[in-house]
């Protein structure tokens, strides 16, 4: 299948490893990624707080680029998914559409509203299917206990995302099982990572992140995995601050979604950029090796 690849800002910068892993996994599963050098940032749930119509217009421009090429959009970030989906919906409101069009039509940009916004998790579980992913596994994850961490904007508001149950999703866990990991179910998996207020009130943001990591650990997780690079910043790059907030060591590796899949499909840790994490993934990767060897 062929999709318009919308990497988002973080995967093109501090979260480069997410981009590496996404490309590796898509290559391996025969998903062709078409690049659009004209894509702009989704606004991340912040710029619309300053100007919603502007943000919708910028995202409709992104969607129109994919539409002109006849492609659906592949996202690798929960927040990008949420913002682009929201733009699709808000553009259906005639008042919003009129204002957005007043800016876009003079530029020759017209959007018919046909583009579906699909996160990689959804493509892997819905379009490729967990069975096809399972068939491609060359290095099952040896029962590594992984706590999925969905990220708010991939699930909620559920009636807008129109996909999984917001309270009891299972796509990520299904995928983890397919690649030989053991999914860990914990309350925090559908909670917030705290990222949106990291610059408003860092101590509160870090406390929220720390609680979700604690929760995953309390349920036996060897690692977490997230489909959202913003959650990844909060859970990995800021885990040291989360440790301070909860008052004890956490030391829990956090994978990006395609890294977990990539490991099982035979990618090396280097190809997936695992060396770029702030919390070392080496103990978790070593466990996979031991678990895989222990298999008959």
């Amino acid at each position: 299948m062929k999709l318009a690849y919308y990497p988002g800002c973080v995967a093109q910068a501090s979260g480069k490893e997410l981009d590496l892993a996404t490309r590796w996994v898509c290559r391996s599963l025969g998903i062709e990624l078409v690049e659009f050098p004209k894509f702009s940032c989704c606004g991340s749930g912040f710029s619309d707080e300053a100007n919603e119509v502007l943000t919708v217009a910028l995202n409709v421009r992104n969607l129109a680029l994919a539409e002109a090429a006849g492609l659906d959009l592949l996202t690798v970030c929960s927040t990008c998914t949420g913002m682009l989906t929201l733009a699709n919906l808000r553009y259906q409101d005639p008042k919003v559409k009129a204002r957005v069009d007043s800016a876009l039509v003079p530029l020759g940009i017209r959007y018919r509203g046909t583009v579906k916004v699909k996160h990689l998790l959804r493509v892997l579980t819905e379009d490729i299917g967990v069975e096809r992913v399972r068939a491609k596994v060359v290095r099952p994850l040896g029962g590594l206990k992984v706590g999925a961490f969905y990220g708010c904007h991939l699930l909620r508001p559920a009636d807008e995302l129109n996909w999984e149950s917001a309270e009891e999703p299972h796509a990520f866990e299904d995928l983890l099982s397919a690649v030989g990991a053991t999914p860990v179910y914990y309350r925090g998996r559908v909670m917030c990572c705290g990222f949106p207020i990291q610059f408003v009130k860092p101590e509160t943001a870090s406390l929220i992140a720390g609680r979700q990591i604690d929760d995953a650990k309390a349920h036996g997780a060897d690692a977490m995995a997230t489909p959202c690079p913003l959650c990844h910043i909060s859970l990995d790059a800021y885990q040291n601050k989360a440790e301070k907030a909860v008052g004890h060591s956490l030391d829990l590796p956090v994978f990006h979604l395609p890294q977990v899949v990539g490991l099982a499909l035979g990618a090396s840790p280097e190809e997936l950029g695992l060396g770029r994490h702030l919390v070392s993934t080496a103990p978790a990767v070593a466990k996979i090796g031991a678990g895989a060897r222990a298999r008959p």
């Binding site: 708010c152 909620r156 508001p157 559920a158 309270e167 917030c192």
Partner: peptide, 8 residues
């Protein structure tokens, strides 16, 4: 946090 847990 705009996590939408309240809306859900």
């Amino acid at each position: 946090l705009r996590c939408h847990l309240c809306t859900e």
